[in-house]
Design a protein around this nucleic acid. Structure first.
Lengths: 88, 88
DNA sequence: TCGTATTATTGTGATAATTGGATATATTTT
DNA sequence: AAAATATATCCAATTATCACAATAATACGA
């Protein structure tokens, strides 16, 4: 019933990074390709992909292939709520 | 207006640790002395104090001296909201 | 299939976080 | 003042995280 401190802190850790928080916030409105993120974030592609991997592995986001491109979108509702708190 | 990614991710990092998340959750209802936390968490006093220091330095909790004891309580509203999300 | 575009993975050095024993500080009690 | 109690700080060892270049994998078009 209560909080699973280990699991929940893992989720928090996933978004407790300025770049990942920015990615998640950017994905809240509409989904986005990796290529576009690289452009917007002005970071090396490998670095962005690393962060996406972390968010993916913790169930924050999910990919959907569209041809050559991969589009990500936020699927964790708690993360959406948390980002909402910061937007207030 | 928007999100301060650096500052906000620092706040998330503060609670993105199982022990600190547990401390914060425990402090949500009523305040608590360090001694009691050490007992409940079954961790060395220095370790608990370190975690409290991190939460303190990031404005999540604040201490109040009561004689020899120090009682902590949560003062950040966003943190309260976030813990609330996990309790659902 | 060859080439190109897009994304993921791997390797590595640098930096930061975590832990707990030892020690210091502060407050109360005797 | 000395002892006891409560908490914070210091330090060193271990572990985790970070950034990014290099490389691999994947999908599409010619």
């Amino acid at each position: 019933m209560g909080i699973d401190y280990n699991k929940d802190s893992e989720l928090l850790k996933a978004i407790a990074h300025p770049v990942r928080l920015k990615i998640v916030k950017g994905l809240m409105g509409d989904e986005c390709s990796v290529k576009k993120m690289v452009k917007v974030l002005k970071l090396p592609q490998s670095t962005v992909s690393q962060h996406l991997g972390i968010l993916r592995s913790r169930g924050v986001i999910t990919p959907s292939k569209e041809g050559v491109k991969t589009c990500y979108s936020v699927i964790d509702e708690r993360v959406k709520d948390i980002v909402g708190i910061f937007k207030k």
